[in-house]
């Protein structure tokens, strides 16, 4: 890798370094040797069930940031096929401004590996983008319920997108993401049942003892409600509260990353597979190696 080019902000050097991170050949410790002082950009994650309109909303967020002259990076995550290991990364199709500005870096990422909804090295990628002075970093990910609380570990702020008639997801989200969201968006406000959805969400949140996030209505189709969203996002990022739950999730995410990087991990899994050792033995072996 070409460190000088990377430092000068060369896009190809950045892309190559992200590939190294994805392949486990470069991490935040290596990064700190090149950039001793990293100031984190604003890291937003956007998540929600398939089809609620995350990509369309991303397009407006990107446009708004670019119009305000921010340096923007987007990490668009799609799942890897468990069968072939391949992936079809299609977020560029829907995010139409993904490739037409020098102030926007757009990278599609496959989830790879074991850990499900987000790639295990994404935090290292976020740190790299921060080191290169990207001011707004957006992570777009398919929200499939509970597992998705992990996005809270790698982002500072969380935008949860809902839509009318995505009601069956409500149960799953109630227990996880909804409590962690900084802003909840009800998209497709042009549809009749959107108000009903907003009321349902408000009701569900009212039952909670915690401080609840604002619920905003937008219509990506008619480009309605976005000014309010941008104002609310500014408010959130200017007034960040510490969160015990988020710290917990961040810790458990970091712990799990450590697990998959353990030198004997394949050996231990192999022994578990053949019943040579029990789960308790495995944990003890792992502890020894840490």
């Amino acid at each position: 890798m070409d460190i000088n080019k990377l430092k000068q902000g060369d896009r190809r050097a950045l892309s190559k370094t992200i590939s190294l991170i994805e392949n486990g050949e470069f991490n935040s410790a290596d990064l700190r040797k090149i950039f001793p002082e990293i100031i984190s950009g604003d890291v937003w994650a956007i998540t929600g069930s398939p089809g609620v309109g995350k990509s369309c909303i991303c397009e407006y967020l990107i446009e708004n940031w670019l119009n305000s002259n921010f340096k923007v990076a987007v990490l668009a995550v799609d799942p890897s096929s468990p069968l072939s290991g391949g992936a079809l990364l299609g977020d560029r199709i829907r995010i139409n401004n993904s490739d037409n500005s020098d102030n926007l870096y757009f990278r599609s990422l496959a989830t790879r590996g074991q850990s499900g909804a987000i790639p295990s090295n994404i935090l290292d990628i976020v740190n790299l983008l921060s080191a290169l002075k990207y001011e707004k970093i957006l992570i777009e990910t398919v929200g499939a319920g509970q597992a998705e609380v992990r996005v809270a570990a790698v982002s500072q702020y969380l935008l949860l997108v809902e839509a009318p008639d995505s009601g069956d997801m409500l149960q799953a989200e109630k227990a996880g993401l909804m409590e962690l969201a900084d802003i909840i968006l009800v998209n497709k406000s042009d549809l009749e049942r959107a108000n009903e959805k907003q009321e349902q969400l408000e009701l569900a949140l009212k039952l909670s003892d915690h401080e609840t996030p604002p619920i905003l209505m937008v219509s990506a189709k008619e480009k309605n409600g976005f000014e309010e969203l941008f104002l609310e996002m500014n408010k959130v990022s200017n007034n960040k509260k510490p969160s015990m739950i988020k710290s917990k999730i961040s810790l458990s995410y970091a712990w799990e990353s450590l697990l998959w990087k353990h030198t004997d991990i394949d050996l231990i899994i192999g022994k578990l597979e053949t019943n040579e050792i029990t789960l308790d033995d495995a944990i003890n072996l792992l502890k020894e190696g840490l």
Partner: peptide
């Protein structure tokens, strides 16, 4: 789809891209 099934990570750009946009995509996606 076929290349995905062969185990590769495939990025589809969507329709009507300019040469400049395609090259920017090639660079960003490595």
């Amino acid at each position: 789809r076929a290349l995905r099934d062969a185990g590769h990570e495939v990025i589809y750009t969507g329709l009507r891209r300019t040469p400049e946009e395609i090259v920017r995509t090639v660079i960003d996606e490595d």
